[in-house]
């Protein structure tokens, strides 16, 4: 597979970014979040109008640095990097989330508002913004908003936001090279499909109907030019 990606690291200091009066109180001073930076130029059959649109999106600033760091911290919690196939930060998730939110207007408000809700909740519970409380405190909040069956009206906006971030993190990860590796995806290559492998059929207790199989393509003859008799029977 061809991974056209620069392996540069983007670093942001957590502490100075959270400048709000109350938010600085419990800041984890010196903590850093870094992630793999994704390319900003693509070439895959675009029209002029599409290229223009993407240039504008990349040039647009939508998130503050504080918001971006919060996204990075959340992505890292959802899919951590302590795994052989890498995690969200290795897969450049903050860059992907930033782009896709700018691209899809209906995501802008939920993500911005979600971050604001999370900070407000963190300040009330632990006295600082989400990124400036300590890790056990962050995970304590996540434990409350990560499950969709929790019926607490106070937490409802947080649950919705966390679900959205989980969706974006997983979709962003599983559409990278690491993600396809993690999944074990085998497709997107030229091949000759000749049916479900026999051992898989056996495991499912299924078999092809013989009359059906008789009608299917004989892959050993696929390169022979098709001819028919006048009765519509294939003769080659």
């Amino acid at each position: 597979m061809n991974m056209n990606r620069r392996e540069t690291l983007k670093s942001l200091l957590l502490a100075p970014l959270a400048a709000g009066a109350a938010a600085t109180a419990g800041c984890a001073s010196g903590a850093r979040v870094s992630w793999t930076e994704l390319p900003r130029e693509y070439s895959y059959g675009r029209t002029e109008a599409e290229q223009q649109r993407d240039r504008e999106l990349f040039a647009e600033s939508w998130f503050s640095e504080h918001e971006l760091v919060t996204i990075a911290v959340l992505c890292d919690i959802i899919l951590p990097s302590d795994h052989a196939n890498g995690g969200a930060l290795d897969a450049g998730l903050p860059d992907f989330v930033e782009f896709i939110v700018k691209d899809r207007e209906n995501l802008k408000l939920p993500v911005r508002g979600g971050i604001a809700w999370l900070d407000s909740y963190a300040v009330n519970e632990f006295g600082a913004d989400f990124v400036n409380i300590d890790e056990p405190q962050r995970l304590a909040i996540c434990d409350r908003i990560a499950w969709t069956d929790v019926e607490d009206p106070v937490l409802r906006p947080g649950i919705r936001f966390f679900s959205l971030m989980r969706d974006l993190t997983l979709t962003g990860y599983y559409t990278t090279e690491q993600g396809l590796l993690d999944l074990g995806y085998q497709g997107n290559v030229a091949n000759v499909w000749d049916g479900v492998p026999a051992e898989v059929l056996a495991r499912h207790g299924l078999q092809y109907e013989p009359e059906w199989l008789d009608k299917c393509v004989d892959q050993s003859r696929r390169d022979i030019i098709a001819t028919w008799d006048d009765e519509m029977n294939l003769t080659s």
Binding site: L38, Y42, R53, G172, T175, N188
Partner: peptide
């Protein structure tokens, strides 16, 4: 003009739909 045999990461939006 080719989009066939592209991997999802070859698009910044990973193949998401757009108005275009």
């Amino acid at each position: 003009q080719r989009t066939q045999f592209r991997y999802p990461w070859e698009s910044p939006r990973r193949g998401a739909s757009t108005r275009l």
